[in-house]
Design a protein around this nucleic acid. Sequence first.
DNA 1: ACGATATATATGTTATATCGTATATATTGT
DNA 2: ACAATATATACGATATAACATATATATCGT
Lengths: 117, 117
Amino acid sequence: MHIKPDSLFAALAHPLRLRAMQLLASEHELCVCELTHALAVAQPTISRHLALLREAGLVQDRRQGLWIYYRLNTQLPGWAQDAIRVVAAGIADDEPYARDRAELATMPNRPGARCCA
Amino acid sequence: MHIKPDSLFAALAHPLRLRAMQLLASEHELCVCELTHALAVAQPTISRHLALLREAGLVQDRRQGLWIYYRLNTQLPGWAQDAIRVVAAGIADDEPYARDRAELATMPNRPGARCCA
DNA sequence: ACGATATATATGTTATATCGTATATATTGT
DNA sequence: ACAATATATACGATATAACATATATATCGT
């Protein structure tokens, strides 16, 4: 898995994409509707940004029934994963990232794939 | 020193700016003419990108006579410095970053401020 | 086959970033 | 004060990214 560093940074440079990455870093796997709820954006908006993250190689997706689950791409080079983790840990308690996690926790009827991951 | 993470990433998202940051991570202090030589770009080009890095808070500058020296901003939050270092170490031997360091080493008449830093 | 749900993509528009070139500013030596 | 050097900024043109909205695709249950 090869990724150009400036492409990695470009993918992380958008506020909404960074918020999505922070949620994925804390939750390991989320479907689009969960991200839509937690980030309070229109579905096509998050879908387009997730597609960009996928094409940049930052996330992987898998379909399960109607839902498509996204997670951080485990095949990224070590330095890229380390950078993402370092930043995630460093800003986790800042806004809006902490609030996004709280919003996610309030979501009713989350599709539960977490039990068998 | 506060910096928005997405602003940090936006600053690093440009190939030329990332190359400049890599050089600064390896050399600690460089003047504009050294960066111009090592990166083989026009002077206004690198100057404009350095201004952007400065305004984003990633680098500091100081004037010494005719020369203006740039270095990584030591007042960045820890997670930001860590992320920069992690990436720098991870890609240091890749191209074009390794070649940029080699080009810098070939530059004649480098203004020597390094002796008293 | 049909309707419902979840997600993805296409389209037209607008804002932002970048570029090449020209010019301005600052400092030093004479 | 003037010339020379190093660096910064301004300007106009072009490319790229983002947005809102509309529409398409995929899967499941009946």
